[in-house]
Amino acid sequence: MYNMIRLIQNENMKIYKRLGTWVMVGLIIFVVIISGLVDKFLLSSNMEGTWQEELQYQSMELEKQINEYESMPMVGNAIKPLKEQLVINEYRIENNVPPVENETIWGFMSSLSDITSFAAVFVIVIGAGIVATEFTTGTIKLLLIRPVNRAKILLSKYIATIIFAIFMLIIMFAGSFVVGSILYGFDRLDLPYLVYSGGEVIERNMITHILSLYGLNSVDMIMMVTFAFMISTVFRNSSLAIGLSLFLMFTGQQMVMLLSEYQWVKYILFANTNLVQYISGTPLVDGMTMTFSITVLIAYFICFVFTSWIIFERRDVAA
């Protein structure tokens, strides 16, 4: 165990003593600040009335849409979230709970959880390079002729990558909190998050909600980083690993959309990486559940990890 900590220290040293890493951290902070400014000054809604009037208007639109859908066959469960939204709107007006979407620190923080994919890009760059660059620079030779087995070395690299991912998420979370509080203050800090569950509206703590959004969004990140790590280990080529992972990350969802009429599509990784779909939104394919997706994700994860480790342990290090 002590041994493992020292190996992780080594990998961390190799990550954080590179200038490039800090450029990435700087970029993340920059993006958070920019999106804060855009959110505050460019996208600020031109609300005319109070939030109550706004909500009532929204509810009317919703009802119209629901009626439209009900007259159509084959809409499936697209109608359910609309109905739920309607109930939540009513609850807000009755209990005087304004929505957080605009003009609050919470609204800003939850909207930023969507851009974790931006942080994912950087984490993929690190994960794709951490094994491959040792091979391309030749440092792998001196690394492997130590009294440490290869499995442990690879594990330390993987853990270091995950630590970097967490580091990036913390920077985003803390950054958006700081930027949000500067721009919007702490006015409505006690606002709850409302969920529709089992026929009634429940109030939940806002901060746990935002944390869970980050958590669910980072599932995608972890899967793609593990994928990049595998490609990097198998092909010893960081460009290939970065390119392939980013390509799949950005097009995977679309491909799944295109194929969503087929039942087998639910076994594709990208149909399952977006776990937020079970919290707010409709599952891609009928009959998909959170448990199903988590099972599929674990299966893929094991597959990626297994491949990386087997290949790394067996590899002949030549030239």
Binding site: M13, K17, K141, L142
Partner: peptide
């Protein structure tokens, strides 16, 4: 065992 295998390739940025 201590060794240098071909060129002593170390971490240049460290």
């Amino acid at each position: 065992v201590g060794g240098i295998i071909e060129n002593p390739e170390m971490y240049k940025f460290l």
